[in-house]
Amino acid sequence: MKRLTPIFNYLEPFDWGDAFDKFGFDDGTGLVRTYEVAYCLERAGYKTAIGHYGIHNIVINSIKLDSIELLPLHDPTIRYGYTPARAYLPKDIIDILDKAFPNQPAPPKKFTNGNRYHPRR
């Protein structure tokens, strides 16, 4: 069986949804692990493309299987980069990512100063 996660999976757990979120990985200033998520999907047989979301995070902006785009980039009900990835990704992809990155922390709490991750910044 193919290994789905890269060898550097020893790092602390993270939310794989940040790889699709404009403000993920602390708005791109934290440890950006988008490439690990893309690597996992490529090992599972998908083709991915990665790009910058403006000056913010590095995100996965294409997932293809047999030349069919699986991200609903033209769906008017989805705001890519804002809508949580679990709301629009196919169940197969969610299952692969949940299995590959099982120890995700709970979604970060909003602190009173509006910062998602660090209450004292």
Rank of each mutant, 00 (worst) to 15 (best):
residue 78 I to S: 07
residue 94 I to K: 10
residue 109 K to L: 11
residue 49 A to P: 00
residue 24 G to K: 06
residue 67 S to A: 11
residue 69 E to A: 00
residue 94 I to T: 12
residue 68 I to W: 02
residue 102 P to C: 10
residue 93 I to R: 11
residue 70 L to T: 00
residue 5 T to K: 14
residue 19 A to H: 02
residue 30 G to Y: 07
residue 118 H to S: 07
residue 76 P to E: 09
residue 54 G to T: 02
residue 72 P to T: 01
residue 83 T to C: 03
residue 60 I to H: 11
residue 32 V to E: 03
residue 28 G to S: 07
residue 103 N to D: 15
residue 64 K to S: 08
residue 117 Y to R: 13
residue 27 D to N: 12
residue 15 D to N: 15
residue 83 T to H: 06
residue 47 K to D: 14
residue 112 T to M: 10
residue 44 A to V: 04
residue 109 K to W: 01
residue 16 W to D: 10
residue 12 E to F: 12
residue 3 R to I: 14
residue 69 E to P: 01
residue 25 F to W: 10
residue 115 N to F: 06
residue 9 N to C: 09
residue 79 R to C: 14
residue 38 A to C: 01
residue 97 L to P: 10
residue 29 T to H: 06
residue 91 K to E: 15
residue 37 V to L: 10
residue 103 N to T: 07
residue 19 A to G: 02
residue 98 D to H: 13
residue 88 Y to Q: 03
residue 18 D to M: 12
residue 85 A to W: 06
residue 86 R to G: 06
residue 78 I to W: 08
residue 24 G to W: 10
residue 75 D to M: 02
residue 6 P to N: 07
residue 49 A to D: 03
residue 17 G to P: 01
residue 70 L to E: 00
residue 95 D to C: 09
residue 92 D to Q: 12
residue 19 A to F: 01
residue 17 G to E: 15
residue 8 F to Y: 13
residue 82 Y to T: 14
residue 119 P to S: 04
residue 101 F to A: 02
residue 38 A to H: 01
residue 65 L to S: 14
residue 54 G to K: 02
residue 74 H to F: 13
residue 29 T to S: 11
residue 2 K to W: 13
residue 22 K to E: 08
residue 4 L to R: 11
residue 104 Q to T: 08
residue 70 L to V: 00
residue 66 D to I: 03
residue 77 T to R: 15
residue 110 K to L: 15
residue 75 D to W: 05
residue 112 T to W: 12
residue 58 I to G: 01
residue 96 I to E: 07
residue 41 L to Y: 09
residue 34 T to C: 04
residue 9 N to P: 00
